[in-house]
Amino acid sequence: MPEKQTIKIDIRDVSVHYGTFQALTGVSMPAYENKVTAIIGPSGCGKSTLLRSINRMNDLVPHFRIEGTVTLDGEDIYAPRRDVVDIRRRIGMVFQRPNPFPMSIYNNVAYGPRLYHIRSKNVLDEIVERSLRQAALWEEVKDKLHQSGLSISGGQQQRLCIARAIAVQPEVILMDEPASALDPIATLKIEELMHELKKNYTIIIVTHNMQQAARVSDYTAMMMLSDSESRSGTVIEFDETERIFTNPKDKRTEDYVTGRFG
């Protein structure tokens, strides 16, 4: 590897169960600081489950159980007495379908900071502008900040959700197929945005679209259902994106990225 990389998120030997159903088995992979890491793989192999284990969103699912460790800067995020709210502030999330809250554009972005008791109008104004600029949305909405967040296009809504996520200054942003509900032009905007965002944030993106993974990511994790009896998802290969797409070590990865899978 050309430069020294800092591991921001480290997933070690993680297995996830929902009740009796095992979703993930022995997943290990890192996510490097200020890099984009893509998670690819066929439907139902546990990509979203893995992503949602990183900011503890799976805690909401009844009978969720996790083994192994997930660390953020070396600290175990599942450690007892660990504050979930703090984890989620430091690890933001952008969802598959744009989900602006039914309130104004301004209030959408200010929602997070207000949760952390930022009340000053000046400070909030500044955060809103900075976040919208970082999400490359400011120019399009600066004259209608007090219009509904649902009144703008789908692609703009998704960038609004990105602005909302970065308004609380997270260190990591998780993206769960952020462009799958968008048209190609809006998708392109999101992808360009990711190149900008990785200067300040560590990004982990789940995507179905292999070209997208190849375009936006520095590292790629290939997931697949294991051949073992449990038929649960696992990471079969992790490497620099270029290697995954040009010279994968695992035959299954090669079949998948060249479209011969299945």
């Binding site: 989620r88 039914p102 929602y111």
Partner: peptide, 26 residues
Amino acid sequence: PQELREGALALGSPEWKSALTVVLPA
């Protein structure tokens, strides 16, 4: 939509606040 509730929780909102400020208004 479940995504609205999760959107608030993913920002670090406690459940009661997400219920009161996002889910109930929606």
